[in-house]
């Protein structure tokens, strides 16, 4: 479904990704973990063509999207939904307009039907009745959930989540995790989640990729990763800032 081959990306003299390769099957859910500033968001943006790599390929169902122009990419992106780390809500529109954006652009669906779908999805992300609010009136966590609703409302085949539960309280985090699983299982959606939350990583991932020092450092099932003896992986999983603590 998604295949990345030898992806390289630098910003100026700063190399962010240096030869990333992996494959994600249809219907699979993959969690990407890694240090802050390690390039996880940058990697995610390459999968949907928002950024162009310096070299390498990104194949979506065998089709390389790297050489495509913006118009060709738009067709591919119909199959994608993406939740941004910053939520990236349109701040000139209400919550309802944000969430229903994709349908309204399509112009095939009557307004009442859109409103119904919007209300239902807002219920699912635990924000019922917020349709007429402006993004500026929402808390950070609420914005994130509106962004999530906007990304999954049109039932895309592939959903990319950039830190879906960061900044949410544990109870809402749990419900968002469950929602992501429900979306995945109901429609056989291919899911890529970037997260720092080890509990969600364990629950959401059928496979975990760890990005470290510009490469995929480790890959495996959650059990393999969580039982890994590798010091770099261990340090990340256990959340230890100073490796010497292991010695004492």
């Amino acid at each position: 479904m998604i295949e990345v081959r030898d992806l390289k990306k630098s910003f100026g003299s700063l190399t962010i990704l240096d030869g990333i390769s992996f494959r994600i099957e249809k219907g699979e859910s993959v969690v990407i973990i890694g240090r802050s500033g390690g390039g996880k968001s940058v990697l995610l943006k390459h999968l949907i063509g928002l950024l162009k790599p310096d070299s390498g390929q990104v194949l979506i169902e065998g089709q390389d999207i790297v050489p495509m122009n913006e118009r060709q990419l738009l067709k591919v992106r119909h199959r994608f939904g993406m939740l941004f780390q910053s939520a990236a809500l349109f701040d000139s529109m209400t919550v309802a307009k944000n969430v229903g954006f994709a349908f309204r652009r399509d112009r095939s669906m009557p307004e009442t039907e859109i409103a119904g779908k919007v209300a239902r999805i807002l219920e699912m992300v635990d924000l019922p009745g917020t349709e007429m609010k402006n993004p500026a009136e929402l808390s950070g966590g609420m914005r994130k959930r509106v962004g999530l609703a906007r990304a999954i409302i049109y039932q895309p085949e592939i959903v990319l989540y950039d830190e879906p539960t960061t900044g949410l309280d544990p109870i809402v985090s749990d419900s968002i995790d469950k929602l992501i699983l429900r979306v995945r299982d109901r429609l056989d959606v291919t899911t890529v989640v970037v997260t720092h939350d080890m509990r969600s990583a364990r629950r959401l991932g059928q496979r975990i990729l760890m990005l470290h020092e510009r490469k995929i450092y480790a890959a495996g099932t959650p059990d393999e990763i969580f039982q890994s003896k590798d010091p770099v992986v261990r340090q990340f999983i256990d959340g230890v800032s100073d490796p010497k603590e292991y010695l004492s």
Partner: peptide, 21 residues
């Protein structure tokens, strides 16, 4: 402002060309 707050990117992920919209 839309660009620096990633709203333009969001537009593009929603299959909308910034030039059109």
């Amino acid at each position: 402002t839309m660009r620096v707050t990633e709203q333009i990117d969001a537009l593009r992920t929603l299959a909308t060309h910034p030039v059109d919209y």
